[in-house]
Simulated scan of single mutants.
Amino acid sequence: MSLNYVTRVQDDLGAIAPEAWDGLLARQDAPSPFMQHAYLSAMQTSQSAAPETGWTLQVISLWRGTPQGDVLAAACPLYIKTHSRGEYVFDHAWADAYQRHGLDYYPKALVAPPFTPVPGSRLLAESDDARQALLAALLDICQTNNIPSLHILFGSPQDLQACEQAGLLQRDQVQFHWQNQGWRDFDDFLSSLTQEKRKKIRQERRKVQEAGVTFRAVRGPDMTEGDWALLLRCYQQTYWE
């Protein structure tokens, strides 16, 4: 199957035209904006996800030859990582188990947009066959370079199906999402809870108010330089802690 494609491994997303990458993304079942060419390029050019921070990008792409020229058939960003930070999937117990048995857990291979635990398509492909060929190329790269493990995070149903067909292990995850069930206001929401939960929430909100904490909602275009600087400091402090 993979013989029908030419596989390219490049260290710069700029080697692939944005319209080709985003056009392929648009054809997926879950085209997350965080897999767009511009977003992934910003992660690289800003040095947020760079070798200096433990993220070495390898752009894996499969090309199909046509009389009009090569066509992008499948692609994904592959990061070779020396740590597990910025993934929001906590596999530190795995790393510890490897170390206890004298094995190397890092470097590991990761397919996911950096710092973004948002589900969406990861293995971009024009067909199921191309997706399987892309996954086979990823596994071959890991084996050739002695990379112990490949991780595809927050993938789409198509991605999970491809991984299952390839014999990869799947791990379950639990996320909690709050959804408005038609409550008129916050008090209406509280009325749907038990008395104990209402009491705890009111106590917590009162403590926040007594501490002098206030909230201000601002849209991106309306944010000042000071707002962005504060946002950056908060993110940096969170990661340091």
Rank of each mutant, 00 (worst) to 15 (best):
S2R: 14
S2L: 14
Y5N: 00
V6Q: 01
V6K: 02
A15G: 15
I16K: 09
A17T: 11
P18T: 02
A26K: 07
D29G: 02
P31Y: 01
M35D: 06
M35I: 06
M35L: 15
A38V: 04
A38H: 12
M43S: 05
M43E: 05
A49W: 04
G54Y: 05
W55F: 13
L57P: 09
V59G: 08
S61F: 12
Q68M: 09
V71L: 02
V71M: 08
V71W: 01
L72Y: 08
A73I: 03
I80A: 04
E87T: 10
Y88T: 03
V89E: 03
W94D: 04
W94I: 08
D96Q: 06
Y98E: 12
D104A: 02
Y105F: 09
Y105A: 01
P107Q: 11
K108P: 01
V111A: 00
P114C: 07
P117H: 04
V118M: 11
V118A: 06
R122A: 01
E126Y: 01
R131V: 10
R131Q: 13
A133T: 10
L134R: 00
A137Q: 08
L138M: 04
L138G: 01
C142I: 03
Q143P: 02
T144N: 09
T144H: 13
N146Y: 08
P148A: 05
L150Y: 01
L153M: 02
S156P: 06
P157H: 14
Q158H: 15
Q158L: 14
Q158Y: 07
C163E: 00
Q165D: 12
G167M: 01
L168S: 02
L168P: 08
V174F: 14
W178H: 08
W183I: 04
F189L: 08
L193M: 10
R198D: 12
K207E: 13
Q209G: 07
A211R: 15
P221C: 04
A229S: 11
L230M: 13
L231M: 12
L231E: 13
L232F: 04
R233C: 11
